[in-house]
């Protein structure tokens, strides 16, 4: 009798694995998407109370309302002004530091980055409270500058760690080759180093923007009652307006982040910038 090769029963195995994976995926989906769906439905619902399994009706009324209330309009405006400024200020301060640290020796870089990290390891509320006392002294309480500074503090960790890694990953001889080709130091930085570190820098900027856009603790402590951004306005909304308005506002709050992450995915992860990094 010829030796019969017993095929590995991969089929059943893969099916059971698939089923388990499917269950987990669905659970994850419910966990992540469930609240969002709940939010979305509320944003368009005339009313949706507990025992009922569907809202009484659909309406755009709540969107109109959000854009009607002066305070909410103000908050949206502040958010869309402050967050980009925070990203830019943070970039201007942190990127040179990140570049310098990438060109330090190993231990210099470690120390710098760990310092940056430990500054973020404390509970933020303590830091903010200390800053608030300092702000009274400096007359920064309730000012845009004050809010910007508080938000910049929180973005530093993204703007130093990620770009530092990106700068450090640019091979030194690519810069040397450019010098050899006749480029000045500044031109080498602009056309080679910065260009190659760009995907990392963009990721850092997206994360900083999302952080700043979402920051509530410090902004509230320092900005209120003069300055409200979208998340801090939320405190007031929850108390004053029907839940549907909160839902609409939450959705508005989510849109920029989702858009940015989508863009980042398309241009950084799938784009040619990523391809450029496939150095042998």
């Amino acid at each position: 009798m010829a030796n019969e090769v017993q095929p590995l029963n991969l089929h059943t195995k893969s099916w059971s694995v698939k089923i388990i994976l499917a269950i987990f995926s669905i659970l994850m989906l419910i966990l992540v998407v469930g609240p969002l769906v709940w939010l979305a439905v509320h944003a368009f619902a005339t009313e949706w109370k507990f025992p009922s399994y569907k809202p009484t009706g659909l309406t755009l009324e709540w969107f109109r309302k959000v854009f009607e209330v002066q305070a909410l309009k103000e908050a949206m405006k502040s958010s869309f002004i402050i967050s980009p400024i925070v990203v830019l200020v943070s970039a201007v301060i942190c990127l040179p530091a990140a570049y310098a640290s990438a060109r330090y020796n190993y231990w210099g870089r470690r120390t710098f980055l760990i310092m940056m990290f430990s500054a973020n390891a404390f509970p933020k509320i303590g830091l903010f409270a200390t800053i608030a006392t300092l702000y009274y002294f400096l007359n920064l309480m309730g000012t845009i500058v004050g809010v910007i500074i508080v938000q910049v503090l929180g973005t530093i960790i993204y703007m130093t760690w990620i770009p530092a890694a990106a700068f450090a990953s640019v091979p030194k001889n690519l810069e040397e080759a450019a010098r050899d080709a006749g480029a000045s130091k500044f031109r080498v930085f602009r056309t080679i180093t910065l260009r190659m570190a760009m995907p990392g820098i963009l990721v850092a900027m997206v994360m900083s923007f999302i952080y700043a856009f979402d920051e509530a603790q410090g902004t509230f402590l320092v900005g209120a009652p003069n300055i409200y951004t979208m998340p801090t306005a939320m405190y007031a909304i929850v108390e004053t307006y029907p839940i549907q308005v909160t839902a609409v506002f939450s959705i508005l709050l989510t849109i920029p982040s989702v858009l940015l992450i989508g863009l980042a995915r398309k241009h950084i992860i799938g784009g040619q910038l990523a391809e450029g990094f496939q150095i042998k």
């Binding site: 001889n173 080759a177 450019a178 260009r195 190659m196």
Partner: peptide
């Protein structure tokens, strides 16, 4: 950048982007 020489690097050092 100011020397009249041009170098070919051991690992080529081409710019990937």
């Amino acid at each position: 950048e100011k020397r009249p020489s041009a170098m070919v690097f051991q690992n080529y050092a081409l710019w990937p982007h």
